[in-house]
Nucleic acid binder design. Structure first.
Ligand SMILES: NC(=O)c1ccc[n+]([C@@H]2O[C@H](COP(=O)([O-])OP(=O)(O)OC[C@H]3O[C@@H](n4cnc5c(N)ncnc54)[C@H](O)[C@@H]3O)[C@@H](O)[C@H]2O)c1
Ligand SMILES: NC(=O)c1ccc[n+]([C@@H]2O[C@H](COP(=O)([O-])OP(=O)(O)OC[C@H]3O[C@@H](n4cnc5c(N)ncnc54)[C@H](O)[C@@H]3O)[C@@H](O)[C@H]2O)c1
Lengths: 197, 197
DNA sequence: TATATCTTGTGAAATCATTCACAAGCATCC
DNA sequence: GGATGCTTGTGAATGATTTCACAAGATATA
């Protein structure tokens, strides 16, 4: 679904007003029947003979994904990757607003990233209670990740995106996803060794 | 498979020598039968009544994934995310060696990241021909991504990991994967809006 | 050695996902 | 308005994956 949204935005930029399931399939590397099945799960909003209205379908998918509202995000760990994420414009463009960045390192605390001051992580629990962020990004060393996940979960955060390359266990009621870049590379190498027999 | 490897390493750190399919399943959130089917696809290396040897299974999976050799990696775009990736220790730990970083920005070229000097991207094609990197990480603005993918593919790179949030089309014979962090957040929000009816 | 207890490896069954195929709907053109 | 050309939405067929269920191998214990 998120991918379809990317394709639709791409298509809109090219000035097209409608798109057929076949076009979407070609972009996504699937079949037109697949695309239609996926979309029909949420209702039917295409026009026969014409395809889907790019604007209408985008809007509907944004609704389904919950992107019609703004989301508050905090970042834990202001190291190399945390700092990059804090300054990433792509988040705000899609409705994700970074409202806080935390670290334990005295040398980091107080520094400003894009107008956002790095806070002492001891202030985090109180801030979460007050500002009620929806999602936390965990960008700390692997050893510290599970403890922080438990801590933000307890404080009331319901979604977590983890960047530490370690298996984590999410407490009940918390949605967890992990981005593991070394793992992505491993999937690539598997494909590479596989393709040369 | 890569995930199983993570679990095994985790388990080894805890001092365990064997692990059962049930344990692996619990870690991965699947069933024991699933794990056994996955592993049996590549042969049978468990011991009945005991489980799998953590060391032997790790080794076998590393073999299957092609991690028993070293891989050469270049990074294109030395911006915020490119710089973070260039300094990331986790890659070298898993056998991925960054041998070059490229940018167009005069202000960036010549700077050193962890002992790695940022090169002018006009030198890139010659370097690829000479050093034969296996994988390129693309960390440039979305508009520039497709052109660079085509360019490194032509120069002989066979695997690409893309960080730009845009749909790319890989030329024949090139394995492409993309990491899209805003998309990861969208998947989280979908789960969040879904779970509250 | 005999017995009890685990856990793998794997056919068979059940479930889930994709593809096929086509009636029905809409737009366009004559 | 009627014929023509596209494209959707969706049952039915096919294909893939997951789960079930259990025989057979391995260890441990006495
Ligand atoms: N650098 C990358 O490109 C990259 C890529 C993929 C994954 N990662 C992972 O992301 C994590 C961070 O990587 P990095 O390169 O930014 O490391 P880093 O050392 O630059 O930054 C880690 C930061 O976390 C802070 N920290 C440690 N414990 C903390 C706590 N309890 N609360 C708050 N802050 C705490 C540290 O003070 C430090 O500033 C690691 O797990 C790493 O494996 C990094
Ligand atoms: N910053 C993040 O945390 C983050 C997160 C996810 C995705 N991304 C994506 O990663 C990409 C880079 O993001 P960033 O934040 O590092 O941006 P950035 O502006 O800091 O860095 C981009 C760099 O690419 C260089 N560049 C541009 N064209 C180039 C070319 N043809 N060849 C070589 N280098 C070129 C620029 O000079 C610049 O240094 C973007 O597509 C962004 O959407 C960034």
């Amino acid at each position: 679904m998120s991918l379809y949204l990317r394709f639709l935005e791409d298509h809109r930029r090219r000035g097209k007003e409608t798109i057929s399931s076949g076009d979407l399939a070609a972009l996504g590397g699937t079949t037109s029947a697949q695309v239609r099945k996926d979309l029909s799960f949420f209702g039917s909003f295409g026009t026969r003979g014409l395809g889907y209205s790019v604007a209408a379908l985008s809007h509907r998918i944004r609704e389904i994904l919950g992107l019609e509202r703004e989301w508050r995000v905090i970042i834990i760990g202001a190291g190399k990757i945390g700092a990059a994420l804090a300054q990433y414009r792509g988040f705000a463009e899609r409705g994700f607003h970074v409202i806080g960045v935390y670290d334990v390192d005295r040398a980091q605390i107080g520094k400003s990233l894009n107008g956002l001051v790095i806070q002492d992580e001891s202030a985090m629990d109180a801030d979460i209670a007050r500002l009620k962020p929806d999602i936390a990004l965990i960008a700390v060393p692997a050893e510290a990740a599970q403890a922080l996940l438990d801590r933000v979960a307890k404080a009331g955060v319901r979604g977590v995106l983890n960047f530490a390359p370690t298996p984590l266990h999410a407490p009940e009621g918390v949605k967890l996803r992990s981005v593991d870049m070394a793992l992505e590379l491993e999937i690539l190498t598997y494909a590479l060794v596989g393709s040369q027999h």
